[in-house]
Amino acid sequence: MSVIPATDRPTPQVRRFGAVNWIGLWTLYYREVRRFVKVATQTVLAPLVTTLLYLAIFVLAIGNPAHKIGDVPFQAFLAPGLIMMAMVQNAFANTSSSIMISKIQGNIVDTLMPPLSPGELTCGFALGGMTRGLAVGFVMWGAMTLLVPVGVHDFLFVLFHAVAASLMLSLLGIIGGVWSEKFDHLAAVTNFIITPFAFLSGTFYSISGLPPFWYGVAQLNPFFYMIDGFRYGFTGHADGSLAAGLIVLTTVDVLLWALAYTMFARGYRLKA
């Protein structure tokens, strides 16, 4: 029985990546996108139906067509808020459910084993969630324009706030998904943190109608700035300071990115 001498075999080389493992990053991103596209009825059509229901309910319940906020008709005021709410909820759902399900089913190792750095993991997941948020937002926008006069006042504001808000909730979804150990925990994050912040952020009403104390509190909510700036992009009506909004959103995005990165780097609740 002949044995090939070890020296004759080519020594396997460690595969080298440049600064960024582009193939790995693209694969992770592509998987995250394919995940929601495959069940588009649940991830795009369902939010669309829910959002249109909200539109119908609020328009019917608030009633009076002459009802205006500033000089904006109520429907035109409401539409951008609803689009934004659907976007952020879906961006959050994409990353949090992806990580949570992988953890519960044990296939998170398939994501942790490949040569992806913490930065690449954060980036792949975050951009995947952001893509879902933007896709949902785009579909909502299309549907809304058929029903409500939605003009665009400043497209750059629309774009910046859409991207910054989707990214923010997508990062929060990573953090929530990594932190949660059971679906209960994730449901608690959604029910007790995300939904209240989103509902109480001025989606459905102008915060300038609030009593002074609550007006102050509402301005501490980062969700307020993303809805307010996004709405300004459509209607030209803002309740708060736009410059403050740009700073708050950028800062929060950077901080959340750093937190998500740290979680992946330390393997928090992911590695033994």
């Binding site: 609020f58 319940a61 608030i62 939904t195 209240p196 509902f199 109480l200 989606t203 459905f204 009403y205 109608g209 609030l210």
Partner: peptide, 9 residues
């Protein structure tokens, strides 16, 4: 939340 939102809106 629904109650609060409707009350304010």
């Amino acid at each position: 939340l629904f109650l609060a939102v409707f009350a304010v809106a």
